[in-house]
Each structure stands twice: as structure tokens, then as C-alpha cells.
Design a protein around this nucleic acid. Structure first.
Lengths: 187, 187
DNA sequence: AGTGCCATGTAACCAGTTACATGATTGC
DNA sequence: GCAATCATGTAACTGGTTACATGGCACT
């Protein structure tokens, strides 16, 4: 399980409430780990009883009170211990790839709009990464350790999106080729 | 849910037993969808009662009997209907990326062996893809529709591994740089 | 009047993982 | 004798998703 650790890393970078964590998981951290607010609240309570985080109740006016969480010493140690454990290989769930193979048993042309939709999504994400990189790391040669590590992860996201865009173009070309030569497999 | 559909696609490509499906999920299909045999047996039974697949009991001598499953007409229609539904965006789970950011709160040098282990795993996988591509698609210009779609998915896997290798080199360079300049953040 | 943001939660369900169980055959 | 391969399953658990609930403030 790594959601605990993802939350701890986020709290080490900056303390915050469950709500704030949920919005971070929708933005930056969401690039490589997703979580809903329900999950986050549940895990935060568990980590509090484990002593990995502490809460500070903050009253606000004009908006609801919030509970600001911070990582504790034991929490930091838990992260360090987890870093020393080997990561199991990622379990892949690539639904679009399954669909592309499935297209052989239906009409490949039908998949084109879906692939185009994905392409547009990835293009938009790449744009967001690039503008985010410009904004958050305007001078990539002067970064402290934490920023360098954040930056190299962001570079990974950018390269992933570029690769994916190129591949989706390859997929689209293949689908268009198949649409032009109507073989109609077993239908 | 897409495990049903991944199994159906695999059975459309070729009928097989739960055991055979499990080994396919360890090889080719495992590139973009994973499943254990327990899961596969459970889903096959559900799909049988739904009429998406049919079983044929095959007695064998020298080895245990097996139940060979095939996709039915309704199964094929279920795949076609699923193809027309939009795919939800993939939920990403990239544990290594979390660890790289976590390294800022521990010793970045400690992560180097782990990243090298990953690099070796991805390099081995790329090799396997490349030899598999040579073996299964020796002449990529003469492929039928099904093979073309399988091939474009394989190309995606190859490009993904290449990109990942390049990124892991980038990560390693970053970690080595940080190890040379001991900043030691909050320890 | 309606939408969106801030903020926290409960409850039910479903998918996926881990552990355990059985048993014959083939090869080292 | 031991491990690997073929072959199918049960049971318990855990992590993640979906639906539902509450309520004030700011903006259009």
C-alpha cells in the first residue's frame, strides 16, 4: 500500500487539510497517484491513530473549520523505511490497448473518435505540464534538492505524454488504413 | 470494469481454459492488463451464467481435465457495445515517482540501487518485446487486420519502454548529482 | 435562483490480493 | 526426493469506488 506514503510525502512537502490534499491529488500528485477525498479522510484518521500525522484544528470565518495535518517524526521514519523496501512492479491497466485489440472483432473505424478524444486529452495535459514547468521551475539550473526531484518527475510526465501522443498518431494511422481496406473479419 | 472484456478479447483471439488465460495474462496481455488465476476463474463463471462464454469439458490423459471456454455471440456483442462506450481516463499508480519525490526527505543516494533495478527490469522487458516482435511479426508489411492491431499495441509497449529507460537514466543522473553535493535537508 | 467552492464525513459495494487446498505428471 | 507444470478452486481480507449527506459563503 502506498497511499499512506503518497499522503505523507505530500504533507512533508507542505502540511494541509484533507480537502487540500484531495485537490493536490487532483493536480500535481494526481500525475502519479490518484485518490478521492473519502479515501484520504479515512487514511488520515488511520495515520493519526498510528501517530504518523498530527492534527491542528483551525477555526476559520467565512468558511468551514478545517483540520490541518502534518507529518510527525514517526511518519517521516515510516517514509524512510518504505524507501528502503523494493517497489513491486507496477500493475498495468491500459484499457485503450485492450480496446484496440478488441477492434479486430468489430469495426476498427468505430474506434477512431475514441482515440482522437484520448489524443486531445493527452495533448491538453502536455500543455498543462509545460506551462506548469515554466511557472514552477522558471530557472531549472538553480533548484534545491527537493525541486530537482520534483522536476525530474515532471520531466517524466512530459516525456510520457509526448510518447503517448506519437503512439496515438500511429494508432490513428493504423485505424485509418484498416478503415480504407474493408476486410470485415467475422461479422 | 474491463477484466471481462479483456478475457473476452483473449477468447475471441483463441479459446482456452482458465489456466491458459492466466498464463496469457502473464505474457502478452499482461503488458496492458493483469489478473491472477483466482480472478479469472471467478469472472469466467460469472460470464458463463451471463451467457457471454460457453464451456467445453475436455478430458486429458497424463494431465488434469480442463474446461475450455469460448466467447459466444452475446459475448461478442458485449465487446462491440463496450467499444462504443468512452473509456474513463486511466487511473495512474506510479509508485516509483512517489518514491523519487520522497527521496527529498531522506537520503537520495539510497534510492539509486532501486532505480537501477527498475532500469534493468525495463531493459529486459524491451528486449523481450523486440524479440517477440521479430518472432511473431517477421514481415510487418503483410499483416491482416487483427495482426496490425496487435502490432500497433506492441509498438506502443516498445516505445513506452524506450521512453522509460531514457527517463530512468535522467533520474539516475539527478540522484548522482544530489549524492555528490551533500545538502542533507532536514535530517 | 443556481452554480461552484470550501470542508468533512458515513455506508454499501465491488474488484483485486493473499493465503490455503488438492493432486497427478514430468524432469533433474 | 524436489521442483516445476498443468489444472481448478475456496475463503478472508483490503483497497478503492460510488452514492448519499450536510451546510455556509461568494458570485452571476
Amino acid at each position: 500500500m502506498a497511499l499512506e506514503h503518497a499522503i505523507l510525502v505530500s504533507l512533508l512537502e507542505r502540511p494541509g487539510s484533507g480537502y487540500e490534499l484531495a485537490s493536490r491529488f487532483d493536480r500535481s500528485i494526481g500525475r502519479f497517484w490518484t485518490a478521492t477525498h473519502q479515501q484520504i479522510y479515512r487514511v488520515l484518521r488511520r495515520m493519526e491513530t498510528d501517530g504518523w500525522v498530527v492534527v491542528e484544528h483551525v477555526a476559520q470565518d467565512g468558511r468551514p473549520d478545517k483540520k490541518v495535518y502534518s507529518a510527525t517524526g514517526p511518519g517521516r521514519q515510516a517514509v524512510a523505511a518504505w524507501l528502503r523496501e523494493p517497489v513491486e512492479p507496477e500493475t498495468v491497466r491500459h484499457e485503450l490497448a485492450v480496446k484496440i485489440r478488441a477492434a479486430a472483432f468489430s469495426d476498427p473505424a468505430e474506434l477512431i473518435p475514441e482515440v482522437e478524444r484520448h489524443r486531445a486529452g493527452h495533448a491538453a495535459l502536455l500543455e498543462r505540464y509545460l506551462t506548469g514547468a515554466d511557472r514552477d521551475f522558471p530557472d531549472p539550473d538553480v533548484l534545491d534538492a527537493q525541486e530537482q526531484l520534483q522536476h525530474v518527475v515532471l520531466r517524466g510526465g512530459i516525456e510520457y505524454e509526448r510518447m503517448t501522443l506519437a503512439w496515438l498518431d500511429d494508432v490513428l494511422a493504423t485505424l485509418h488504413r484498416l478503415a480504407r481496406t474493408p476486410s470485415n473479419p467475422q461479422d
